[in-house]
Amino acid sequence: MKLIVAIIRENQLDQVRESLFEADIKRITVSRVSGHGRLQADEEIYRGKKMIPNLTPGIRLEIAVNDEFVETTINAIMDAAESNEDGLVGGGKIFVTPLERCIRIRTKEEGSEAI
């Protein structure tokens, strides 16, 4: 079992979700995050002043998968999020970590069954 954590551009959430859905990955957790790294944000304009948020907004996806689905999931995210419009650097990152245990609360199932 692996836990895949992906940080993506906030405006690419819809297309990533669609792509995951097509790959039959339907159990995901989404949160709004911010941070800094190489991810560049779209500039915003307030009363003529151009501002680039110094904490760049992003979307964090958490997806727990069985080993055989790791590549499928990664590819689905990559396919959808690779477009790099406006020449902005940074499409985000994908982290894959081992997952020790996974328990479904209602049925108390454990391990691969529970994912």
Partner: peptide, 12 residues
């Protein structure tokens, strides 16, 4: 179209 956002940090 406007280069702004309506809300701060709210859920997607």
């Amino acid at each position: 179209y406007h280069g702004e956002r309506g809300y701060g940090m709210v859920n997607p």
